[in-house]
Write a protein that binds this DNA or RNA. Structure first.
Lengths: 67, 67
DNA sequence: ACGTGATGTCAGGAAAACCTTACATCAAGG
DNA sequence: CCTTGATGTAAGGTTTTCCTGACATCACGT
């Protein structure tokens, strides 16, 4: 699922390790998300949205969105 | 994670099996969500939101929400 | 040339989200 | 009483998400 994670992270000058620390996940998990290896759990998606102050849909593209 | 799945489903008069069919998951998956056995994947959460025409955050309570 | 930091990959494992099948309960109707 | 439909539980298996640890690369500064 396409996302703006790398864009949002580097806009804040954070490393993948720093982002992982702030989200409570490993650096590998961050890499897997940024490189589209897999999708986040809903709970992790909510933590990411809270951290960046944006709705989930604004960060992770919804492939089932209406319209 | 608390959610309004059962409320939204029964408001439409659907059975758990019918909802599972519309979402492309098993009846057990629907039960597990409604009874808080586990959280949906982000992709499934998006399918649910699209089906009911509401944002994800309006269906699944975000425990990390700001404010 | 050397070391350091950031990124990515790989291997192997743990945990959570899904699956199917089977069985129990309980309400409503005939 | 009996059947049927809706719901829930349980067991066992697959797939996906997330983990640690090790290693390769590449840019940068000294």
């Amino acid at each position: 699922m396409r996302n703006r994670l790398r864009e949002l992270r580097s806009a804040r000058g954070w490393t993948q390790e720093e982002l992982g620390r702030r989200l409570g996940v490993s650096r590998q998990a961050v890499i897997a998300l940024e490189t589209d290896k897999h999708d986040p759990s809903l709970d992790l998606a909510y933590r990411i949205a809270a951290l960046f102050g944006e709705p989930v849909e604004a960060i992770f593209e919804n492939p089932h969105a209406a319209g």
